[in-house]
Design a protein around this nucleic acid. Structure first.
Length: 1065
RNA sequence: GGGAUGUUGGUCUAGCUCGGUGAAUGACAUUGCUCUUAUAUGGCGAAGAUCGGCGGUUCGAUUCCGCCACGUCCCA
């Protein structure tokens, strides 16, 4: 029969439990057990298999597991297929790094795209294995063997299927997108790449005036650090709220933002100028100007749209530098692009991806844009439009591979999923979702959804789901292919070893149905969020057999971190609304991130990432899980903090220790739990038994209320508080007295039954949070002391509320007890009266009738508990009885009048009846006889202070005022002394390793005779308590025969010195 | 740069949805006292926060609004 180790070591426990689960196939058994239960379907948000699992991932996964285990124990047949997101840019970047690939163009020549893709597969497989291992170590019970992988052909096929459907619904289309582009690598860069490459760059900084149309001699003054973009200028943006002024600069009028007038005038070397007119920006909307390169660039001559070559408004305008009028070229900047879209100005982007002007700009055709800056300035100067020219050095994005300055460039070949006509449906679908917390969904996500733009899904990449669009070389007609089968049918030639990845898919050429020409694939892959977004359908292989999908959809529950709002939550809803007309999930819990100890972001570059594996292998999964789950609400950020984990781990220590305590005595008494017996005898049970069971049921109730709302942190906190506060600190000390009774004693059996019942219930409730320790305690404790339990706690049912055990009146009564304990300790503490010294009386002046009734009902228990001879609960504050009025002379008033009589007067004042004196003074004059003289006192001569009489100590509490009468009598002192002595003898018995029933002989040598006398009053009691056959009490004037005693020890009890001799007999 | 979200004793946190009681909750750490034959515990005290800063709404704001600083997330 195995025994629990003395100390809780999570690592040892968890290793053992993992082994047990593995050997006994416990997970499979839970599936089988619940297979006929009601369905509850969880959709796993697939982690990206690049990099390892860190503690932030692990927190989210702990939440998933807790919910899953909870539902399983509630009897549900839980769908929980795992999933992995395996494609995308980060994988490529790591492979490029590993392979030393600098330029993407090199892939074909040096490595070969097929080899590259192979490397990507190997990399994600490597990470996949670690993710699975770490997840299992964390205790996350998912279906791993059947887990979906976004890189599989079957999965990608669903993405194609979706895109074809989207296209048929008119939602797929081409559009412009402004990308940071490296002209040397001839590729667009992702935001992530851009942020890696900021560096200082020296650029021209020019101030240019644009001649206005219909406003004679007036000019708009703009500023730019990229002169070449002026070629493609279409608008000038002003801020709608800023004030702009028209300046007379000697024959010409210039428009500049008011805040920057002086700066601009100084740069332009205009010494005298005057303000002619002031306007807010929005009034300038629509003002036309003549493009500075109107004559040179044919494109500009054709312009006649309303806002072309006109002033528009935008909030991106600042007054930090420049002129407050921002030159806007929609093809060359994200802000510019947005403005262009808003004012319906078409994009002009006469520059190739390699950064060279096209034939649309005849004067610069074939020239690299940066190289034209000087020329642009020169031309402007010639035209007399250059106001000022200088250079600035600023932070500018560079290519992280080759350090070439990037160009923001509009690219019209990108593919989009449109929002047109869909927005309302998405918002409505989202409103049907139950979000936790509510504001994250309807507010944060809902607002964002209502304003979401078209979704750019094309990526100029390799390792991803290929965009299934083929375009005819000749007639340019397009076809979106929806499946592998369809592709094969339309292919001119279909390779044997086909795979739905680049480069294989690129090699498939289709025949154009219109012109019989050749069709080639658009060389994009799709955004990997589209992959994971299809999980609702693709994860269950809908295309092969939709029956499983039909059973599961919509899923009951998903949970991911906030960064998924724009990611997974969005892509799920978008694709599902398009395909199935509704959101694919019913409940969604939003999580926040885990930060480092100082609240900083965890990142590889900072080196502050805590990997899940390390955390799990050093602190253990259970302490980690309970920390992550209870420390803060799922939607609040949290800091990873070792100190805090240690604190919460202590609570698991407490659980372990209370079980250990129970086990020790239950083992001794050969106890077997019998629920019927417990219920039968419960009416006669001790107060604390009924109380504990009622508390337990309150916990069960609250726990389920929280769990039903996915408030794991609340549910967990309720549990931890119960075990540490109620069970360990309150109940066990009360029960301890009973474990020494005979093993057959019904009081003791009841204590065991209650302990067992409470622990069994508790451990099951806790199991979803800390499955390892709970499994261990189930196996090695619960199973041993009851019949008919299954081998694993995961095969048991979640305890539900047992109404008949709930007794709120009992709990309220017990609260009174706790309050009285606290208050009495406080009052004792004030007077320095230790608990083991009995006091004469404790009085409660209760707040209300119920409290006093409850307190009275506890009287017997209280006498023992508070160690008092008497207890009374009364309702009214009988002030006179408990307070004492004392007189304080006012020396400043009395001194000058009574001078040398002061000493006697003061002495007399202490003796006088203070209440009477106060009453007299209130009426008028009081007289006092001192040394035969009658002295007169008036108000102000003395102050009165209310104080407690010496023998009383007072403490306030939530339930009323508590007075403790600490009057010392001989008997009370004797009792206290005997308790002191008894305790020390018991300590010595333990140190001698005596059996409980072993008799002894004792001598007590006191340092004063008074103590001898006191001890004699309780001689028999002392003998009984310590199982002494002989007891010799000796004072300071005699030295006992020490030789007789085998164990001698000296003690100090306050001032008393005590030497104890002891021998077994 | 835009949007979102947060900032409470030395540390970590509760409360803030729907502003109002008197001491803003609890834990750790500090400190005084104390209990205990389950516990690397526990109990009673002391001390410690003008609830990030500044403004506004209001009779009244930690709680609502705005701006600023700092952190974080998403987008650019």
């Amino acid at each position: 029969m195995s025994q629990l180790p003395k100390r809780y070591d999570p690592l040892v426990v968890e290793e053992e439990v993992l082994d047990f689960w593995n050997k006994e196939k416990v997970y499979d058994k839970t599936l089988k057990l619940r297979s006929s239960g009601p369905k509850w379907n969880f959709l796993e948000g697939p982690p990206t298999t690049n990099g390892f699992m860190h503690v932030g991932h692990a927190r989210g996964r702990a939440m998933k597991d807790t919910q899953i285990r909870y539902m399983t124990m509630r009897g549900y047949d839980v769908w929980r297929r795992g999933g992995w997101d395996m494609q995308g840019l980060p994988v490529e970047l790591e492979v490029e790094k590993n392979e030393g690939i600098v330029e993407k163009g090199l892939i074909d020549s040096n490595v070969g795209m097929d080899v590259f893709v192979q490397k990507c597969k190997e990399l994600v497989d490597f990470y996949l294995e670690r993710w699975v291992n770490d997840s299992i170590r964390l205790g996350l019970w998912l279906d791993y063997p059947e887990a979906y992988q976004t890189r599989k052909d079957d999965y990608i096929e669903h993405v194609w299927y979706f895109l074809k459907m989207a296209n048929e619904k008119g939602l797929l289309g081409r559009g412009y997108r402004v990308n940071p582009t490296c002209p040397r690598c001839v590729t667009a860069l992702s935001g992530h790449e851009v942020s890696q490459g900021y560096a200082t760059k020296v650029d021209p900084s020019i101030y240019v005036k644009f001649e206005m149309v219909d406003r004679e001699n007036e000019y708009l003054v703009i500023w730019t650090t990229t002169p070449f973009t002026l070629i493609s200028n279409e608008m000038v943006s002003v801020h709608p709220k800023y004030k702009y002024v028209k300046l007379d600069v000697g024959g010409e009028f210039w428009w500049v933002v008011e805040d920057l007038v002086e700066v601009v005038m100084e740069k332009a070397k205009v010494e005298s100028y005057s303000k002619v007119e002031t306007l807010t920006g929005k009034k300038m909307l629509g003002w036309k100007y003549r493009h500075p390169f109107h004559d040179e660039v044919p494109f500009h001559q054709e312009h006649d749209e309303k806002y072309m070559h006109a002033v528009v408004t935008g909030k991106h305008v600042t007054v930090e530098d420049g002129t407050g009028l921002v030159h806007t070229a929609p093809g060359f900047g994200p802000d510019d692009f947005e403005v262009g879209k808003e004012f319906k100005v078409p994009v002009l982007a006469p520059v190739t991806t390699s950064g060279k002007f096209t034939d649309e700009v005849p004067m610069f055709e074939g020239k690299l844009v940066f190289d034209t800056n000087v020329e642009v300035s020169r031309l402007l100067k010639e035209k007399g439009l250059l106001v000022h020219e200088e250079t600035v050095s600023h932070e500018y994005p560079h290519c992280w591979r080759c350090d070439t300055p990037l160009i923001y460039l509009a690219d019209k070949t990108q593919w989009f999923l449109k929002m047109t006509g869909l927005r309302d449906k998405l918002v409505k679908a989202n409103n049907d979702v139950e979000w936790t917390p509510k504001w994250a969904g309807t507010g944060r996500f809902g607002d964002w959804l209502a304003n979401a733009d078209d979704w750019c899904i094309s990526r100029s990449r390799i390792w991803g789901s290929p965009l299934p669009v083929w375009v005819c070389d000749d007639c340019k007609s397009e076809v979106v292919v929806g499946s592998r089968k369809e592709l094969k049918e339309r292919a001119i030639e279909f390779p044997e070893d086909f795979e739905m990845h680049r480069p294989w898919v690129d090699e498939v050429v289709l025949k154009c149905e219109k012109c019989k020409g050749e069709m080639h694939r658009e060389q994009f892959v799709t955004d990997c969020w589209l992959d994971s977004g299809m999980a609702h359908t693709a994860s269950v292989d809908y295309l092969k057999d939709p029956s499983l999908f039909n059973r599961l959809f919509p899923y009951d529950f998903i949970t991911e971190a906030v960064d998924q709002s724009r990611g997974w939550f969005y892509s799920l809803i978008y694709t599902s609304v398009v395909m199935h007309g509704s959101a694919p999930f019913k409940d969604c819990v939003s999580q926040e991130h885990v930060l480092d100890e100082d609240g900083g972001k965890m990142s590889k570059s900072r080196g502050n990432v805590v990997w899940a594996k390390d955390a799990l292998e050093t602190i253990g999964a259970d302490p980690f899980r309970i920390f992550m789950l209870t420390r803060s609400a799922s939607w609040s950020r949290m800091n990873h903090n070792q100190k805090e984990i240690d604190l919460i781990r202590k609570k698991l220590d407490v659980l372990w220790n209370v079980v250990l305590f129970s086990e020790t005595y239950m083992e001794l008494d050969k106890f077997k739990f019998d629920e019927k017996r417990m219920m039968k005898f419960l009416p006669e049970a001790n107060l604390e038994d009924k109380w504990l069971l009622s508390r337990l049921e309150s916990v069960v109730k609250e726990y389920h209320e929280h769990m039903d709302k996915y408030l794991w942190h609340q549910a967990g906190r309720v549990l931890l508080e119960f075990i540490t506060e109620d069970f360990s600190r309150v109940f066990l000390p009360l029960v301890k007295k009973r474990v020494w009774l005979d093993s057959e004693n019904p009081k003791k059996v009841m204590a065991y039954d209650v302990m067992y019942y409470a622990l069994q219930t508790f451990i099951r409730l806790l199991n979803p949070f800390t499955p390892f320790i709970c499994e261990k305690l189930h196996k090695d404790f619960l199973v041993r002391f009851a019949d008919g339990l299954p081998e694993s706690i995961n095969l048991t049912d979640m305890p539900m509320l047992v109404d008949k055990l709930l007794d709120t009146e009992m709990e309220a009564t017990f609260d009174v007890l706790q309050e009285l304990r606290t208050a009495s300790s406080h009052a004792r503490n004030k007077k320095g009266v230790k608990l083991r010294h009995p006091v004469a009386k404790v009085t409660l002046i209760a707040e209300d009738k119920e409290t006093s009734k409850r307190a009275e009902s506890l009287k017997e228990l209280l006498l023992d508990d508070l160690n008092t001879r008497d207890f009374e609960a009364v309702l009214t504050d009988i002030l006179a009885e408990f307070t004492q009025l004392s007189v304080k002379p006012n020396y400043k008033a009395l001194g000058p009048r009574y001078k040398d009589m002061m000493k006697q007067l003061v002495a007399q004042l202490q003796k006088v009846d203070a209440v009477k004196l106060r009453d007299d003074l209130e009426k008028g004059i009081a007289t006092l006889e001192v040394k035969g003289k009658k002295l007169e006192l008036v108000q102000g001569d003395v102050d009165f202070e209310e104080s407690l009489p010496e023998h009383l100590s007072y403490a306030d509490s939530k339930i009323g005022k508590v007075y403790v009468d600490v009057t010392r009598t001989k008997e009370l002192e004797a009792e206290g002394l005997v308790r002191d002595v008894t305790r020390r003898i018991q300590v010595m018995r333990k140190e001698m390793d005596l059996k409980v029933e072993q008799s002894i002989e004792i001598v007590l040598h006191f340092s004063d005779n008074e103590s001898v006398e006191l001890a004699k009053m309780f001689e028999d009691h002392l003998k009984n308590e310590t199982r002494a056959v002989t007891l010799d009490l000796v004072g300071p004037d005699r030295e006992p025969g020490w030789k007789k005693y085998s164990y001698i020890k000296e003690w100090e009890i306050d001032d008393l010195k005590l030497k104890v001799g002891m021998a077994a007999r």
